[in-house]
Amino acid sequence: MNSSVDPAGAARQVAKNPWFERAARLGYAANGVLHATLGILAAVIATGGKAEADQSGAMRTLADQPFGMVLLWVCAIGALLLGLWSLAQAFLPENKVRERIKHAATSVSFLAVGFTFGRFAVGKPSDSGKTATSFSGEMMKSGLGRTLLIAIGIGLLVMAGYYIYKGVTRRFLKDLSGSRHSEVSRAIKTSGMIGYPAKGVVLGTLGVLFIVATVQGDPKEANGIDGALKTIQDQPFGPVALIAIGVGLVCYAIYLVFRARYDQMD
């Protein structure tokens, strides 16, 4: 009896299962909930309030709401399902190499988000800002580590440029199947055109902070999204810019909810 496992066959069973695909769409909605909360926290900071506007702060805020723990579990399951579905797509030999790499990156991202949601759901939260600072501090102890940190910063800048480009050119529409309702189509276009550049600005600022922290040898500078948003706040017209980014992140969240319904999933 042949007990060997066929990765491509197993991946195909997951990737081509219509029920699994429908359930995995929940991951986009979970990401939308996360970004909407980040946008609200960014606005709180901009108006002089105290908030931790990063992944951990957003999940902690969600946990404190009525039915927050239920929401965390739903988001955890959705993100993990989408991560597993994307991982299966990455193993399909019929997909192009570029598509498989894209799905692999998406898988890592959503599995990480899903596990973080899960940690908060079971009462074992983490601090993403401290994690980023600790990671940077360890990497700065060697020349190779500093090189990798700068590479991460450059990678984030490239991603930022792509997000801005994707929003301005409406390239994100290629990911979706069209809606028959003109009002929905307009809402998708508007939310994507505002949301993608806002996410790009946050990623770009985070990339700059990684590079600056490495050059200055100060890991505290690389303290995640919260640090990036507070750096924006400290600039001239920073509060206004931060409110605009907060609105943009909420728009991106709205787009992600639409994406949960209309993504082509291929």
Rank of each mutant, 00 (worst) to 15 (best):
M1C: 02
S4Q: 10
V5I: 15
Q13P: 01
A15N: 01
A15L: 04
N17R: 14
W19C: 06
E21C: 06
A23K: 07
R25D: 01
R25F: 01
L26E: 03
L26T: 13
L26A: 12
G27A: 08
Y28F: 15
Y28N: 07
H35D: 03
H35K: 08
A36S: 04
G39K: 04
L41F: 01
A46V: 03
G49C: 01
K50Y: 06
A51S: 02
A53E: 02
Q55H: 15
Q55T: 15
S56Y: 10
A58V: 07
T61H: 14
T61F: 13
A63L: 03
G68H: 02
G68L: 05
L72P: 10
W73V: 12
W73G: 07
W73C: 10
V74G: 00
C75H: 01
A76F: 05
A79Y: 06
L80Q: 02
L81C: 00
L84S: 08
S86M: 09
Q89A: 13
A90C: 15
A90E: 12
N95Q: 13
R98C: 00
R100A: 02
I101T: 11
H103T: 13
A104D: 10
V108N: 02
V108Y: 14
S109M: 15
S109Y: 12
F110C: 02
V113P: 07
F115P: 02
R119T: 07
R119V: 01
V122K: 01
V122E: 07
D127C: 04
S128F: 12
G129H: 05
M139V: 08
M139K: 14
M139Y: 14
M139T: 08
S142M: 01
R146E: 11
A151D: 04
G153C: 12
G155H: 15
G155V: 14
L157F: 05
G161M: 12
Y163T: 02
Y165A: 11
G167K: 11
V168D: 11
R170M: 14
R171P: 07
R180T: 13
H181I: 12
V184N: 05
V184S: 06
M193F: 02
G195W: 09
P197C: 07
P197G: 10
P197K: 11
A198Q: 04
V201E: 02
V202Y: 08
L203Q: 12
T205Q: 09
L206I: 11
L209C: 08
F210Y: 15
A213F: 07
A213T: 00
E221K: 10
G224M: 11
A228P: 10
L229Q: 04
L229W: 00
L229M: 11
K230R: 15
I232N: 02
I232Q: 04
D234L: 11
P236D: 02
P236H: 03
P236K: 06
F237W: 03
G238Q: 09
A241H: 09
L242P: 01
L242E: 10
A244Q: 00
I245K: 04
G248V: 04
L249F: 05
V250S: 05
A253C: 09
L256S: 08
V257A: 13
Y262C: 05
M265R: 13
